[in-house]
Amino acid sequence: MKKHFLIEKNIIAILLLLLGAGLIAFGIHSGQMKAVLNKASRVCMECIGIG
């Protein structure tokens, strides 16, 4: 009963969480994690103000 109430009151959050998880999984599957690592493990010249 309580579980039902919990889901009902938070249904939008739950759907968005599932959508987010799905996007993350698809992104990982398409190799996007590597692309993030690639960018994050080099100094970004724009970020630090060299350009």
Partner: peptide, 25 residues
């Protein structure tokens, strides 16, 4: 921004997914 400004456009599924997940939580 790195995904959006890439030479070849790639929809940022992974980053957007993280932002969506954290935001919804």
């Amino acid at each position: 921004q790195n995904f959006l400004s890439g030479r070849k456009f790639r929809f940022p599924y992974y980053v957007l997914g993280i932002l969506l997940f954290v935001g919804a939580l």
